[in-house]
């Protein structure tokens, strides 16, 4: 049985199995359970890897590493957190490891203070951020916007990028993100705030240039 047919089959025969049921079946040696876990969460892990590393090949490596490691250590998974959180914990470590190995991406721990409004001359700075709810023909071209956001995200130092992705893209809470990255909730809040300010500045710069350039 291959592709989506496994899930279809499970839906027809039994109700959609919960993560707990899948983990239990896996422990009993079910290969089908593994397939369903990859089908259920593979796209999210791939997307996360892609956002963190920027290349599909890296995203695939990270995702493979994540699921392999998950299945090897699934016996030690005690269910004190959701399966998806545990997968993201493994994936986050893989992303950070991969980045350290890379020679071409310097460890740019740039100061984000420059994006705080204390900067002289920033009094009353107004930002040009398109309204996400404006209609499609307002100056919000979806493809263009994706490109602007993607480029801005890539310029974020990885420690900030990973927090922005987990919190604002993947929707994990502050506490969950702190648990995934094994750092304090306060550190998550600080990094997230700065990452958002950085994104705002970059998006606004782009649309200011559009307007006046």
């Amino acid at each position: 049985m291959q592709g989506e047919s496994v899930v279809n089959h499970m839906e027809k025969t039994a109700s959609n199995p919960s993560d707990e049921q899948l983990v239990a079946s896996f422990r009993e040696g079910s290969a089908e359970a593994m397939e369903i876990i990859v089908e259920r969460y593979g796209n999210r892990i791939l997307r996360f890897g892609l956002k963190m590393c920027g290349h599909l090949q890296d995203a695939e490596d990270i995702s493979q590493e994540t699921f392999l490691s998950a299945f090897r250590y699934l016996d030690s998974f005690r269910g004190e957190t959701r399966l998806i959180n545990w997968l993201f914990k493994i994936a986050s470590r893989a992303c950070m490891r991969k980045r350290r190995k890379k020679k071409d991406e310097p460890d740019r721990e740039i100061s984000l203070d420059a994006w705080l409004p204390e900067r002289p001359g920033d009094e009353g700075r107004s930002y040009q951020i398109p309204d996400p709810d404006a209609g499609p023909d307002a100056h919000l071209d979806r493809k263009e916007m994706k490109k602007v956001i993607g480029e801005a995200m890539r310029q974020l130092p990885p420690h900030y990028r990973i927090v922005l992705n987990l919190r604002d893209v993947e929707g994990f809470s502050t506490r969950e993100t702190a648990d995934i990255l094994e750092i304090s909730e306060q550190a998550i809040k600080t990094r997230l705030h700065r990452a958002r300010l950085f994104m705002r500045e970059k998006i606004s710069e782009y649309f200011e240039e559009e307007a006046y350039g």
């Binding site: 796209n43 791939l46 997307r47 892609l50 956002k51 107004s126 930002y127 951020i129 398109p130 309204d131 996400p132 979806r142 916007m145 994706k146 956001i149 993607g150 995200m153 922005l164 992705n165 604002d168 893209v169 958002r196 300010l197 994104m199 705002r200 998006i203 606004s204």
Partner: peptide, 18 residues
């Protein structure tokens, strides 16, 4: 408001068709 829009845009534009 500009920060709220930024967050919302990041959220929506992150959808990636794999």
């Amino acid at each position: 408001e500009s920060l709220r829009r930024t967050i919302e845009l990041c959220r929506r534009m992150a959808e990636e068709e794999i």
